[in-house]
């Protein structure tokens, strides 16, 4: 009973985390599902989004403006990966890894900017964590109020932001340009034959995707009260987990594109609810990466194994007949 009570008490917090990560999952959906491209930049971009947003807020910026700058920083990261891939001919996965690695150094620098401006030479040149305090900093949202029945409950703002992002993406991928990006992922040969610049479209898709991932990082930093250089480590796997969980559970039900994006967000929420549950069962927080990797591996393997098993079963039926 105690267990259920404490699990129930931590559910709202899991919901908040899931919603914020849901934006990241939408970003992963765009590259992994639509562009058919595994973009590993996002591990770095998530931290960059958090770092840029946090440092600007500690410098006294309006949190909405800080969020916007974080998104722009993420888009820039996507642009770099896109150009490494298309203009320099580096395989997409490697391009993402290169940008991600570079961002690690940059993120440490970014978080120190506030101190350097305030303290000059006395300040450290790099910084691995940056705390935000809802009493001192004007934050858009904070997990502190997640169980409150008031307008400052962060879940309200998160639901609104997720809804707006899904609506925007739904509109964008229905435009001429958006359709051409979908065609680029679906069949690049056909796309080029129809006069579509597939290189430009890949870059564009990576820019949009990483913008969303950085937004997710910026919201997470405010929500949890700190930005850290490690907050994005393994983010791609969590994003994939969300996309895959959403797909496995809701693919039959959700046909519309907007609903498919929503499925990824729901996947992220489910992921965090499950994580909360296993933490309550006594696992250490550091075990989560192992658990996440296992979950993703299993879900990615299921369709393949299912097909193999099913086709074998079919063959057996044939020989019987």
């Amino acid at each position: 009973m105690d267990f259920l009570l404490s699990f129930g008490r931590s559910l709202p917090s899991a919901l908040g985390q899931g919603l914020a990560w849901g934006l990241m999952a939408i970003g992963v959906y765009l590259t992994y599902k639509i562009l058919d491209l595994a973009d590993l930049t996002v591990d770095g971009t998530l931290s960059t989004g958090g770092a840029v947003c946090a440092v600007l807020i500690t410098m006294g910026w309006d949190p909405w403006l800080a969020l916007l700058m974080a998104v722009l920083a993420g888009m820039l990261a996507g642009l770099v990966t896109g150009l490494l891939h298309t203009a320099c001919g580096i395989p997409a996965i490697l391009s993402g890894i290169l940008t991600q690695l570079a961002l690690y150094s940059l993120n440490l620098r970014i978080m120190a900017i506030g101190d350097i401006i305030k303290l000059g030479d006395a300040a450290a040149k790099t910084k691995a964590t940056l705390g935000l305090n809802v009493d001192r900093n004007p934050l858009m949202l904070s997990s502190r109020y997640v169980r409150e029945l008031s307008s400052r409950n962060p879940l309200i703002l998160l639901v609104i932001i997720v809804a707006v992002v899904i609506a925007l993406m739904y509109w964008f991928f229905g435009t001429e340009l958006g359709c051409s990006i979908r065609a680029t992922g679906a069949n690049p040969n056909m796309a080029r034959a129809q006069g579509i610049n597939t290189s430009r479209n890949k870059v564009l898709g990576l820019v949009v995707s990483n913008g969303l991932v950085a937004m997710s990082g910026a919201l997470l930093a405010q929500y949890s009260g700190s930005a850290t250089v490690d907050m994005g480590r393994g983010a791609i796997v969590i994003g994939l987990a969300a996309v895959i969980i959403g797909e496995v559970l809701l693919d039959k039900l959700f046909r519309n594109f907007a609903l498919k994006l929503l499925a990824s967000v729901i996947g992220a929420v489910i992921y965090y609810v499950v994580i909360t549950l296993v933490l309550r069962l006594g696992l250490e927080a550091t075990d989560l990466k192992l658990l996440t990797a296992m979950v993703v591996a299993v879900f990615l393997a299921i369709p393949y194994l299912k097909e193999r098993y099913m086709s074998k079963a079919k063959k057996e039926v044939k020989t019987d007949a």
């Binding site: 229905g174 435009t175 001429e176 958006g178 359709c179 051409s180």
Partner: peptide
């Protein structure tokens, strides 16, 4: 609709 727009620039107008 993709083929209809061959040779034209793809804008933010509806895809179809």
């Amino acid at each position: 609709a993709l083929a209809k727009r061959r040779g034209k620039s793809r804008t933010l107008m509806p895809g179809i």
